[in-house]
Design a protein around this nucleic acid. Structure first.
Length: 203
DNA sequence: AGGAAGATCTACT
DNA sequence: GTAGATCTTCCTA
């Protein structure tokens, strides 16, 4: 039992939430709660930064060269976790696309809300703003690896899922080009919460 | 079987 | 601000 948890009313996001254009889902995911269950302990972070990826027409997407064994989840059921390795880091995505398409949303940064002690155990940093302010950092802090690939994020029984608070919170959404991609689309597909200290970059 | 790429991170200056 | 480490997956032979 967490001793310091205030009573926050949370509701899990439905499958339908993810059955839309990835860019829209990426924007809508800002401010939502990512929950990682380890044994019965809940690690919780607010999503403050995301990026949208499309299917075959997006040169930066894992789906760009067609369906393969490792990326087939991008065409599959929406609302599932899609996890893979880049530069020795596991990256967490939520599968999101309209019916009969492919796409995913990369979770790039979190604001730690609960289980900070555990997160610091998995990532040896003292600075709170360093804990989950990057896609590879947050997977390490929450102990997310390939084993959780395909996890249903819309099921409260899962080891990872995403909720929203009942009480609405106001914030400004900013956008930019995606980070670290060599051939980007002529669209701004990175979204983040303005002036939140946990986003990975300011611009 | 081996090489190269990659949606990154850290440590250094 | 940038160089070097990192390691899984894919591609070609």
């Amino acid at each position: 039992m967490p001793t310091n948890s205030q009573k926050i009313e949370m509701k899990i996001l439905s499958r339908n939430f993810y059955l839309k254009d990835p860019a829209l889902v990426a924007k809508n995911l800002l401010g939502k709660m990512l929950v990682r269950k380890i044994n019965s302990k809940l690690l919780v972070g607010k999503i403050v930064e995301t990026e949208a990826y499309y299917g075959e027409k997006d040169p930066a997407s894992r789906a760009y060269r067609g369906m393969k064994n490792f990326n087939k989840l991008m065409w599959g059921e929406v609302g599932r976790a899609f996890i893979y390795m880049v530069h020795a880091n596991w990256l967490l995505n939520a599968v999101a696309h309209p019916e009969n398409e492919a796409g995913a949303v990369l979770i790039r940064a979190l604001e730690p809300l609960n289980g900070v002690k555990e997160m610091k155990k998995y990532r040896r940093v003292s600075d709170l703003t360093e804990l989950t302010s990057g896609p590879g950092k947050l997977t390490k802090a929450m102990k997310i690896t390939k084993e959780l690939n395909g996890t249903d994020l819309t099921n409260i029984e899962s080891e990872i899922y995403i909720c929203h608070r009942k009480a609405k919170e106001a914030f400004k959404i900013r956008s930019s080009h995606r980070i670290g991609v060599s051939s980007d689309l002529p669209l701004k597909l990175r979204f983040y919460i303005e002036s939140n200290p946990y986003v990975s970059r300011k611009t």
